[in-house]
């Protein structure tokens, strides 16, 4: 993955607009957060292969990281803390936010085919 370039990612987001897509959305602070720090609290969620069609999508920069909002007919998809992106050979738009040790903290991915199980 490479550091997000806003214009490039915006054009990929636009390519997927108004088409049925599959979305992977995820955030995590790791399975061991409270094991290593008693005051920490494990938080995580993921949705793999949500099916939807968004008509409007936008990426916004804030202090070096990025937020994405996708507006669909009955609601929104939202992610913040995104730092890196890749448009893969499989035609997936992969967006992720990593901490300073390269660990994934948030991911938003869009594809016209379902993501592998």
């Amino acid at each position: 993955m490479d550091a997000i370039k806003l214009e490039d990612v915006q054009s990929y987001i636009d390519q997927f607009a108004a088409k049925p897509v599959y979305v992977h959305l995820e955030t995590t602070n790791g399975a061991y957060a409270s094991h290593f720090n008693q005051n920490a609290y494990n938080v995580g969620a993921y949705i793999r292969n949500a099916q939807l069609t968004y008509h409007q999508g936008k990426i916004v920069e804030h202090n070096g990281s990025f937020r994405v909002g996708l507006k669909h007919d009955i609601g929104w998809i939202y992610a913040e803390g995104l730092t890196d992106y890749e448009f893969s050979e499989q035609g997936h738009l992969l967006l992720a936010g990593h901490d300073n040790q390269g660990r994934l903290m948030v991911a938003l991915e869009i594809s016209q085919e379902p993501f592998s199980y």
């Binding site: 993955m1 992977h24 995820e26 995590t28 790791g30 993921y46 890749e86 893969s88 499989q90 997936h92 992969l94 992720a96 990593h98 040790q101 390269g102 660990r103 994934l104 903290m105 991911a107 991915e109 993501f115 592998s116």
Partner: peptide, 18 residues
């Protein structure tokens, strides 16, 4: 598949990790 370590510096992503 859902590990959050992607290498340091990272070379994997959620889809290539498995």
């Amino acid at each position: 598949e859902m590990g959050r370590n992607m290498g340091n510096p990272f070379f994997a992503n959620r889809e290539t990790l498995p």
